[in-house]
């Protein structure tokens, strides 16, 4: 669209499932003020915290290559929950952006 909006660089972060919980809280989703899920909490002792790279405030663009764009909150949460639950992989790849 030509407007000079700075585009933050996405980061791919691999979270190894080394704890019984993922340990993040997210808010947002399609048709809300926050159209892509944003990390609002990271719980100590969870796999996300152990990974050391996920941060509060980051916006999740993709989970294991699945785009969260256009997905409503419950759908996005389900995708993340299922990525954690599946035994096919011992990790989850998050594509996130750090706003500002």
């Amino acid at each position: 669209n030509g407007s000079p909006v700075p585009v933050p660089t996405p980061n791919l972060i691999r979270v190894v499932k080394n704890s019984n919980t993922l340990g993040i809280a997210i808010e947002g989703g399609a048709n809300t003020r926050q159209p892509l899920p944003r990390i609002v909490t990271i719980q100590k002792g969870g796999s996300a915290h152990n990974c050391g790279q996920l941060k509060v405030g980051q916006i999740i663009l993709e989970v294991n290559g699945i785009s969260l764009r256009g997905r409503e909150h419950k759908d996005a949460a389900k995708i993340i929950a299922e990525a954690f639950k599946t035994k096919e992989k011992d990790h989850i790849d998050f594509l996130v952006v750090d706003p500002g």
Binding site: A25, T32, R33, Q34, Q43, H73, A77, A81
Partner: peptide, 15 residues
């Protein structure tokens, strides 16, 4: 000009 947020806030889910 004031920008109004008309979209609802989201719920929060712990995962």
């Amino acid at each position: 000009r004031e920008k109004r947020l008309t979209l609802p806030p989201s719920e929060i889910t712990l995962l």
